[in-house]
């Protein structure tokens, strides 16, 4: 029971972090069909910016400044890069962001070094908030939950209660129609791209010290965010939210339960020995499969249900 509650909380924290990244990517992918490989790079940049800013003027200004910087970077990428490549088609856009992701990773390595940087939780929040069955729950995780919940609320309000939000919603499902009705879809797209990058940067600011701030963080996070976006479905923020939380829970729970298929079979009276066919596959325990699960999900979803959980059209 205690394991369950603690994992549930951790899964929620991780899921909300994923949602911060995935929401921006869903908007970008659904509106313009750009599979933005550099999205997780913005997450990494956010963490590194926050680290540098926090060494000079502290964590709290970094919480505001780093996402803004990321948003500016995003706007610049969209205006000077993507728009130029746009006329060569979606594949060219995809390749462009892929090359960009490579460059940002190398750039980060060259600016901040190959090793992880000591980006730490601010002292103000570095205490256990409460303890469940003897396990401490750090206050910083609660803070992460708070920030991501606030962000979720802001996105929801912005999308449903403002005029520009309505246009974005329209452009999500029917980009051509929205454009034909006289809305400047490219400008909205620049806005969404910048906002999405800023959100990813914010996720980096609060996620960088929760996980590790290192040059490889973009390439470990990137594919998982793709999985969430595809799983949630194109054009649906609700689907994206559910998929994020689900993915967070799956990944944290997979680490906790130390069982394998062989154990399951043993319940039904089969014993797996080294001579059994596929003994190696059967004996792999769930925590080891944990890293593999998201990609298995990605492949299966794209094969059997390309529109994802709540998508309005195929990927």
């Amino acid at each position: 029971m205690e394991v369950f509650v603690v994992s549930l909380l951790n899964g929620l924290v991780y899921g909300m972090l994923l949602f911060m990244l995935a929401s921006g990517l869903t908007l970008i992918l659904s509106m313009m069909g750009v599979l933005n490989f550099a999205h997780a790079s913005a997450y990494m940049l956010g963490a590194y910016f926050a680290y540098t800013i926090s060494t000079y003027i502290g964590f709290w200004p970094a919480l505001i400044l780093a996402p803004l910087l990321c948003g500016l970077v995003g706007a610049a990428i969209e205006m000077f890069g993507l728009r130029r490549v746009h006329r060569n088609g979606h594949i060219a856009e995809l390749l462009f962001t892929f090359g960009l992701a490579l460059l940002i990773e190398k750039g980060v390595q060259m600016t901040w070094g190959l090793l992880p940087v000591p980006y730490r939780v601010p002292e103000l929040l570095d205490f256990p908030l409460f303890s469940v069955y003897g396990t401490h729950f750090p206050a910083y995780r609660a803070f992460m939950l708070l920030i991501s919940a606030l962000m979720f609320g802001a996105i929801w309000l912005g999308l449903t209660r403002t005029r520009i939000g309505l246009v974005i919603q329209a452009a999500l499902t029917h980009p051509d129609m929205a454009s034909a009705l006289g809305h400047n879809v490219p400008r909205i797209f620049t806005l969404v791209f910048a906002a999405g990058t800023a959100l990813a940067g914010l996720a980096g600011v609060i996620g960088g010290n929760y996980q590790v701030t290192e040059p490889a963080m973009a390439f470990t996070m990137g594919p998982i965010v793709f999985v969430v976006v595809v799983f949630g479905g194109l054009g649906s923020l609700t689907g994206c939210f559910i998929a994020s939380i689900l993915m967070g829970l799956i990944q944290t729970f997979a680490v906790v339960f130390d069982v394998s298929l062989a154990d399951l079979l043993a319940k039904f009276g089969f014993t797996v020995t080294s001579g059994t066919p596929f003994a190696e596959v059967l004996n792999v325990t769930l925590p080891r499969v944990g890293a593999l699960l998201p990609f298995l999900m990605l492949v299966l979803i794209l094969v059997f249900r390309p529109r994802g959980l709540m998508g309005t059209r195929d990927t």
């Binding site: 990605l298 492949v299 990927t315």
Partner: peptide, 16 residues
């Protein structure tokens, strides 16, 4: 799949 979905599914397969 083809186009973008193909790119994604091959990426998933590669990671897998």
């Amino acid at each position: 799949q083809r186009a973008t979905a193909f790119a994604m599914i091959t990426m998933g397969l590669g990671e897998l």
